[in-house]
Amino acid sequence: MAALSSSPVAPCCVKGAVAAIRAMERTRTLRSSVWQMGCCPVEHLRCGGQVGVTAVTKRRGVVACAAAAASSTTDVPTVADTKLSFIKSYRKPIPSIYSNVIQELLVQQHLMRYNSTYVYDPIFALGFVTVYDQLMDGYPNDEDRDAIFKAYISALNEDPEQYRKDSKKLEEWAAAQSGSGIADFAGKDGEVEAALKDIAERAAGKEKFHYSRFFAIGLFRLLECAKASDPAVLETLSKALNVSKRSVDRDLDVYRNLLSKLAQGKELIKEYVDREKKKKAERDAAAANKSSAESVAKTEGSKPE
């Protein structure tokens, strides 16, 4: 944070400014260039080089300065904003057994998505698509499952079609590679190879690359498609992409445990779906019986005595 102006109001206003920033739920620290107060009179506070709101009180003036500074930066949605966007995009009720997992995933991915080092990449997309499809396997309605996916990705201000398209390209590309040859992308030309080279370059720089569990799962899916079961291939691929093999191993262990739990969960989901179908059939039968009874009663009532 840049030093405050030498004006006597500065020391007593720091606490108010910090409170204002926290209240706005910003996930990034405000840059000092837009936070700094100018040397203009106490009645006017300057934010980012522009005159701000007239200060009614010293504290309120700095709060206004912080608010103006925040609005001048790139707006980052809050978790609440992302969840609200999802709810607005998909208005149908989601069974709680799925809804709880989706909401938890959405919060986690929101934090990844708006990390300052995050840049979309197809391996991350493949990892998420893999997890989503496994979690939602057995969902009662295929169209609703696809609609939920679109609402979810759109709520993160990303393109659901790009996620699906890039994931399919990677799977098809990996399936065409030899087991060990999947890590030899650096010396080859092609759309997928170019994307992998870009990831490796950014991962080496550490500035525009955000490693996550979804990325590790994307790597695992690539190896599955290439039928590369040798652990050495994963090590070679991780090295070629400039990501930590240790981190990948750790996250894949978590993923394998998740798959085991998913297998058990699918049994519960099947029981849930069967139970809901039975309830629906009973409701439909009851409604049909009621309608039939009302029809008979109406017919009987219309007969002459």
Rank of each mutant, 00 (worst) to 15 (best):
D159H: 02
R46F: 03
N157C: 13
A23V: 07
T73E: 10
I94R: 00
V131D: 09
V296P: 02
S295C: 15
N115G: 12
S33T: 05
E193F: 12
G16Y: 14
Y114R: 06
C40H: 06
R91K: 02
G48D: 00
A80I: 02
V63P: 00
E104Y: 13
K197L: 04
E158K: 08
S89I: 06
D249W: 11
L126M: 08
I94S: 01
S178R: 15
R91N: 01
G127S: 11
R28G: 04
V243K: 03
A2N: 11
K208Q: 05
D133T: 04
K150L: 09
Y211F: 03
G49S: 11
A20L: 06
E224T: 08
R60T: 04
L258P: 07
T82A: 13
L223P: 02
G187N: 14
K92Y: 12
Y98L: 08
Q177K: 10
A67K: 14
I148G: 00
Y152W: 11
M24S: 01
Q108G: 11
E300I: 13
E43H: 11
P41R: 08
A20K: 08
A183V: 01
S260N: 10
T236F: 08
E104L: 11
G218R: 07
A69G: 06
A70I: 02
Q50K: 14
G138F: 15
E235F: 12
L268F: 10
E43Y: 05
C40G: 11
A125W: 00
I94W: 00
E276M: 09
K206V: 12
A70Q: 02
S178V: 08
A147E: 03
T29C: 06
D189T: 14
E224Q: 13
V243R: 01
Y114F: 04
V131I: 12
L105G: 10
R221G: 07
S71C: 00
A19D: 02
L106H: 12
V76H: 02
V34E: 00
G61L: 05
R250M: 15
S33K: 02
L4G: 14
L105T: 02
K245G: 09
F220L: 07
Y118C: 12
P122D: 00
S96P: 08
L170W: 00
E104A: 15
I123M: 01
G181R: 11
S238F: 02
I21G: 00
K165M: 13
K227Y: 10
A176S: 15
W173F: 14
P11R: 05
Q36A: 12
